[in-house]
């Protein structure tokens, strides 16, 4: 599982954080001068937890009807905001779930400044 400080080293990263499936923020690291605080991240986490669930519902339905596999389970959900994006990942949890582990890791997420955002590098870092 990626360390928060290594996620914060991603291009454009403003914050890295972990949260429960319920949306509750657990831990965070925020870059100096980033316009973020734990209260905002907690809102972000709740929103992303909701959308991760919605996307899993949608991709399950999509795969069942179309037979086009490769979307579910969703590894990352990204919200593209006006100035920044937030990428949240359940990749570690899904790997643990597939391995039959009794406890699952928290979700991880990164807030990125849009001009510098490298989405693919962020996915790869969160998938590790």
């Amino acid at each position: 599982m990626a360390k928060l400080d290594s996620l914060l080293a991603l291009p454009g990263a403003l914050a890295a954080f972990e949260f429960r499936a319920s949306g509750e923020l657990l831990t965070q690291e925020i870059a100096p001068n980033a316009p973020l605080d734990p209260e905002i991240l907690d809102l972000v986490c709740h929103m992303c937890a909701a959308n991760m669930s919605i996307c899993n519902m949608q991709t399950r339905g999509w795969e069942a009807i179309t037979g086009m596999k490769g979307f579910f389970p969703v590894r990352e959900f990204t919200l593209v905001g006006f100035d920044w994006s937030v990428v949240v990942s359940s990749a570690q949890r899904e790997a643990q779930r597939a391995a039959g582990e009794p406890t699952l890791a928290p979700y991880q997420g990164v807030v990125l400044a849009n001009p510098k955002a490298d989405y693919e590098a962020t996915f790869a870092a969160l998938d590790k």
């Binding site: 929103m47 959308n51 086009m68 969703v74 593209v80 905001g81 100035d83």
Partner: peptide, 19 residues
């Protein structure tokens, strides 16, 4: 809370294993 940057998102992205 105003000023979170969550207002008026441009879009979203879903990343699965293959697609």
């Amino acid at each position: 809370r105003s000023g979170t940057g969550l207002h008026k998102p441009r879009g979203w992205l879903l990343h699965g294993a293959d697609y």
